[in-house]
């Protein structure tokens, strides 16, 4: 097995996931099996291939930029309507800055 429990915890921390011990033990072999399957791509020589980030099709160019004009967006009330903890027109969160 190439992946370790330490790797699983490291990746979970990067992804802001707090895994239980049980989850770490369950995910380790599952993730390891998938990552091992992914190694299959190394059988291919891709040194002469350009990476493809988006679907490319032989059609007329799509305008990806629109004029930069002011538009009506969601109101403050609409924007806050789904917030778990709105307050004073803001999204409230727990303490961010350490106190002395």
């Amino acid at each position: 097995m190439a992946l370790s429990e330490k790797d699983v915890r490291y990746v979970a921390a990067l992804a802001h996931l707090e895994l239980t011990e049980e989850e770490v033990k369950k995910f380790l072999p599952q993730l390891d099996a998938v990552l091992e399957h992914m190694q299959k791509l190394n059988q291919l020589d891709t040194s002469q291939v350009e990476p493809m980030a988006q679907v490319i099709y032989p059609a007329a160019g799509t305008p990806t930029l629109r004029p930069d004009e002011p538009r009506q967006t969601l109101s403050q009330q609409e924007s806050l309507a789904n917030a778990p903890e709105p307050g004073a027109g803001c999204f409230k969160v727990p303490r961010v800055i350490e106190r002395e």
């Binding site: 990746v11 802001h16 996931l17 989850e23 599952q30 993730l31 998938v34």
Partner: peptide, 17 residues
């Protein structure tokens, strides 16, 4: 995120990360 996501979503977030 740990309590809101199910197992498959966590697996995919971890693989992607």
């Amino acid at each position: 995120r740990d309590h809101g996501f199910g197992a498959e979503v966590k697996r995919r977030i971890m693989l992607g990360t």
